[in-house]
Design a protein around this nucleic acid. Structure first.
Length: 125
RNA sequence: UGAGUAAAUCACCUUAUCGCUGUUUCGAUGUAUCGAGAUGGAGGAAAGUCCGAACACCAUAGUGCAAUCAUAGUGGUUAACAGCCAUCCGCCGAGAGGUGAGGAAAAGUGCAACAGAAAGAAUGUACAGGUCAUGCUGUAGUGAAAUCAGGUAAACUCUAUGUGGUGCAAUGUCAUGUAUACUAGUGUUUGAGCGUGCACGCGCGAUGCUAGAGGGUAGACAGCUAAAGUUUACUGGUAACAGUAAACGCAGAUAAAUGAUAAGGAUACUUGCGAGAUUUAUCUUGUUGGUUUACAGAAUUCGGCUUAUCGAUUUACUUAUUCA
């Protein structure tokens, strides 16, 4: 697994996302929260991940874009270190719950925590 | 040099590493992907969605009436506009300039603070004049306005002109799925209902329409970026703008790309320290550290308007002072 985040690994199907939010479980490391669901994909990808920032907390599109970019970047850089030992397929959605802006360092540390707790929780079962 | 006015331009940069996305070339095969290379990848407002269009569909979007809304000196400009340019007039400013919702008050209705006897209905008080007599006439006094065909139309109104609707989630093709099922009402050529309020006309229309309850899909491609295009030069025009020539080929994402990190530099501000100048508390400059670098993110595409915006630069002009 490399540091890439191509189109295939993005969660796009509206149906799957609805299913994810209604049936999925979640872990959180404030201000981040990850919803996940065990599933399977038609193509070979193991994970499909989406990123979301509430319009309620960030009114301006620039701020939302900025945070989504930071989230994607942090996910991209750290997913390989935590996901190598996981075998089943998962759909993931990472949410940003905070109301204030942030920087890359804090997002990175929180992302590590989040992925760590996720991988531990999943590998138990 | 100070103060100011009006236009125009720019919107931090460079390198390295790791990524995202469009196009294209080559190679590999499991024929749809992978790998490698090359090359594009946010704005002046991309924003608000306020006007005007292109384009698409709604019977050939057709006629009349009504309503609504918009515009409002004059002339020009444009595909079009409520925009823009020029100019007249009013108001503001010492000026460069700014600003205006600038058609009509003898069609009608309404409204007018304070002051004042009285505010659209009539005349009161004082003085003077005049008459047989009388607010009959003038002056004073209040006020923006006191009979003047008064003011007011960012009050109704009238006049002139314009105005069909829905918007790229339009629309078309392919794929996938399915229910021409059930209940009630209504209707089938003597026509329910639909297409804009009404009327006419025209068209669609029975596997219909309305209501209830319920089921399914929600993917791909086209539309989708060559355009009333951008830049430069010349010509015409006071100008908006138009014409000619040359060059360029300039984002196309879709849970939505254009990013992250590190280093260095630049701009502005500033703490401390140092130097210089003088008007002795200001300016110029060196260095170290710190803080800044705004508003803001394409979503069918253009022309405008409006709003947000740290700052920087250029040009033209006005005015004050000094010098010649």
């Amino acid at each position: 697994m490399s540091f890439t985040y191509p189109k295939k690994e993005k969660l796009k199907s509206q149906k799957l996302i609805e299913q994810l939010f209604s049936e999925g479980k979640s872990v959180s490391a404030y201000p981040l929260r990850m919803v996940y669901l065990k599933t399977s994909f038609d193509d070979d990808t193991q994970f499909k991940t989406g990123v979301s920032v509430s319009k309620r907390n960030f009114k301006k599109a620039v701020d939302r874009n900025r945070i989504k970019r930071l989230l994607r970047e942090a996910y991209r850089l750290h997913k390989s270190t935590y996901f190598n030992n996981i075998s089943p397929c998962y759909a993931l959605m990472i949410l940003y719950l905070g109301k204030d802006g942030t920087d890359f360092d804090s997002v990175e540390t929180k992302m590590k925590q989040l992925l760590d707790t996720f991988s531990k929780k999943v590998s138990k079962h």
